[in-house]
Design a protein around this nucleic acid. Structure first.
Lengths: 158, 158
DNA sequence: CGTCGATGGTTTATGACCTCAAGCATTGTT
DNA sequence: AACAATGCTTGAGGTCATAAACCATCGACG
């Protein structure tokens, strides 16, 4: 274990907050570039792909708007287009007739799986990390962006 | 130093590639949410803010298109709007009359600095990391996204 | 020198998305 | 029953994505 060190912290590199923010900008851009390419491979937009991948369980329009960080009126159009391609379904909520629950169709579930696979195959360097490195990266990102833990996302209403 | 450990790698957390990718999705979304908010605080779009922050030196339209990962025809419109607000300037290239070099005006430089400051003030958790943690995060992100090192960006033509 | 393919930038059209304001239906409360 | 609050949709106006076509300029080549 101890001899599998990849010269880890590499303290010679500058790592000021500014430098780190610029690198995060590049990483975020690279991530979305990969994701958009994977979605485009299935004729979908970045937002449409994001929406599909958020539907691990049915969600209300408002809930989706929150997760997508956009106005609810946008979600109407996005879901309209996804529904027109039979990727998604609007179901009336049994306990509140105002809300519509959006759920993946079978075709939608297949598409999400394919997009996710394409995305992962494009991020080969990420899979090349050791389990130790992945754990360290997760821990650091959790502390750098405490608002975005997976627990916080799952617990959201809608 | 050694007693300021924040229980670092925390190996109990699951850190499969899939989990890591989902976390990167959330981090990228959070980063752009912060950035878009900072840009909106100055009446600018996400793309306009990104463009400004890429102009650490004059760049050609095509060079900007590459850095923004979009078609050159988009850059025309974005730079049009930035130029209309006196944030940016189109200068003819002395050695090639086809290319136009885009440079920040004084007003543009001030605006970039303000946006960057707003962004950093929104990412307080990131500044709370120790220098050691920041170094480790940089190193890990460099290895997870080798395509996006700062050296690679600075070396680009245009 | 003149031709020609390649390159940099712009324009146009169509569609997707964003913002904001307004609207309707339903809910929960008083 | 009247009320404000909530969930979703619609509309207009602006920004961005995408693809095709266009013009000016460059570079190489005969």
């Amino acid at each position: 274990m101890l001899d599998t060190v990849h010269e880890n912290p590499r303290p010679d590199r500058t790592a000021t907050p500014i430098e780190l923010i610029e690198q995060l900008a590049r990483v975020a851009a690279a991530y979305y570039r990969h994701f958009a390419a994977a979605a485009a491979g299935h004729g979908l937009t970045l937002m449409q792909g994001k929406t599909l991948s958020l539907l691990t369980r049915p969600r209300s329009m408002r809930g989706l708007a929150g997760l997508l960080s956009c106005d609810a009126s946008n979600v109407t159009g996005i879901v309209d287009r996804l529904e027109a391609r039979d990727l998604v379904l609007r179901e009336p909520d049994p306990s509140d007739r105002r809300v519509k629950n959006i759920a993946l169709t079978e075709h939608g579930e297949r598409t999400v799986r394919l997009i996710r696979a394409d995305l992962m195959s494009g991020l080969t360097a990420l899979e090349a990390l050791t389990a130790e490195d992945r754990g360290a990266l997760r821990s650091l990102l959790d502390r750098a962006f405490p608002e975005t833990t997976s627990a916080a996302y799952r617990a959201l209403p809608g």
